[in-house]
């Protein structure tokens, strides 16, 4: 566990603390770097054995879109990483329903299995989190 903390010792009373972390992804995957760097935080959080949820809303739903072809714009297609999250025990992926609807997308368009929540359900999910980080 400590090797993932950037070389700084963790305080003793933290060991075994499990908090509910939610990472909210709101941006399209390639116009800005938020999506890619958010994924890096998510992967690190897995090393801390926390209770992690990922939320995709607004243009963030495009991060999960099937068939991303990035070669022509010189970007690395990092979308396969979302499929690998299961291997890090990150299995709670939530997508906001109206964000999908507004973009003409359905869960079948996404590269991973997600749970679709309406805005009231999303609010309830976020309400029960200890730490919410928004990217």
């Amino acid at each position: 566990m400590t090797e993932s903390t950037g070389g700084i010792e963790m305080e003793e009373d933290m060991s075994g603390t499990v908090k509910k972390f939610a990472f909210i992804n709101r941006k399209a995957p390639y116009g800005t770097i938020y999506a890619l760097e958010s994924l890096e935080v998510v992967l690190i959080s897995a090393a801390f054995d926390q209770d992690v949820s990922l939320v995709f809303a607004d243009d963030g739903v495009y991060q999960l879109k099937k068939g991303q072809a990035t070669k022509a714009v010189g970007m690395k297609n990092f979308s396969p990483t979302y499929r690998a999250l299961e291997g890090y025990d990150i299995e709670k992926l939530y997508v906001e329903k109206s964000s999908l609807d507004e973009r003409g997308l359905t869960p079948d368009d996404l590269i991973v299995d997600v749970e679709v929540l309406d805005s009231a359900e999303m609010a309830a999910l976020l309400e029960e989190q200890d730490v919410v980080m928004s990217f």
Binding site: S4, T5, G6, G7, I8, M10, M14, F21, E40, V41, I44, S45, A47, F48, Q50, M133
Partner: peptide, 8 residues
Amino acid sequence: SGLGQLVE
């Protein structure tokens, strides 16, 4: 330092 510091 590393991203672990944020999670910590």
